[in-house]
């Protein structure tokens, strides 16, 4: 299977702290790949490098664009998104003064009504707006959230907030999802439901997932492959069962 994302020898230093120190990994197309590691091992820093929040001190990040792999390190986060990478956060970042439906409608690129001159001419964008609204409604239906369409974010449960943050990327032709701890703060059953949805998204929308997760018992059930980071370096990788029984990984987690 060809790769969707390739991280090649990426290093990121903060003063003397080596947050990432030569990490190389590959996320294959339509993969459901896990990224684990103890606190401070560099997982979120890696996501920040991939999504353009940090420029790596060394190495490169490549992303699939039709048949080529193109360098995306050094691009701004908004440009990274335009290439098809959607990211969610450890603490979900939604737009709290907007309704659920509006949160979805913020996402699409190329909205005519976002141009200040066209925004004045309602007729020039209202047809597109209706289409996007219908698309958003279909999404909400598919994820059993339609009844919350007009709710404010503050009225949603933690699991629904995570779900909304994940599905808003589907309003665009997204290719790769970076999920940062999707199961944090969600009870066991809801977390499993979330991962079931992730699997469904992968299959139905041909998406690729790269997931940071601390709750290994849930993650390992769903992912095909796992990378383990420790002190900014790749410590281990492999199928979930191999990784979980790797003595190095156990040592890093328990810290003998």
């Amino acid at each position: 299977m060809s790769s969707m994302l390739e991280v090649r020898d990426v290093a990121k230093y903060f003063g003397g702290v080596k947050a990432l120190d030569g990490v190389s990994l590959t996320v294959p197309e339509k993969g459901l790949i896990g990224l684990i590691g103890p606190n401070g091992s560099g997982k979120t820093t890696l996501f920040n490098v991939i999504t353009g929040f940090y420029v790596p001190d060394r190495g490169s990040v490549l992303f699939r664009e039709s048949n080529d792999l193109v360098r995306i390190d050094g691009l701004n986060p908004n440009e990274v998104f335009k290439r098809g990478i959607v990211r969610t956060f450890q603490i979900p970042r939604l737009f709290n003064s907007l309704t659920v439906l509006e949160n979805l409608l913020v996402t699409p690129l190329g909205q005519r009504g976002e141009n200040p001159v066209r925004a004045l001419l309602r007729n020039s964008w209202s047809a597109q707006e209706r289409e996007l609204a219908k698309k958003a409604i279909e999404l909400l239906k598919a994820f059993n959230m339609l009844r919350y369409a007009n709710s404010k974010i503050s009225e949603l449960s933690a699991a629904h907030i995570k779900m909304l943050e994940t599905i808003r990327g589907l309003m665009t032709p997204a290719k790769l999802y970076l999920l940062d701890e999707p199961a944090a703060g969600v009870d066991y059953l809801m977390a499993k439901e979330l991962f079931t949805y992730v699997r469904r998204l992968r299959d139905e929308h041909n998406l690729t997932f790269f997931i940071i997760e601390h709750r290994l018992e849930i993650l390992m059930e769903y992912v095909d492959y796992v990378y383990v980071l420790h002190n900014g370096k790749l410590l281990s990788e492999g199928k979930p069962q191999e990784v979980i029984s790797d003595p190095k990984v156990i040592e890093a987690y328990i810290g003998v």
Binding site: F81, R93, F95, N96, L109
Partner: peptide, 22 residues
């Protein structure tokens, strides 16, 4: 308008708006 919606979005959370291509 969609512009007004985007403006409120970036008022609420600039980082998230940036991550959505704005």
């Amino acid at each position: 308008s969609p512009l007004g919606r985007t403006l409120r979005a970036l008022r609420d959370d600039e980082i998230a708006a940036l991550c959505l291509g704005k």
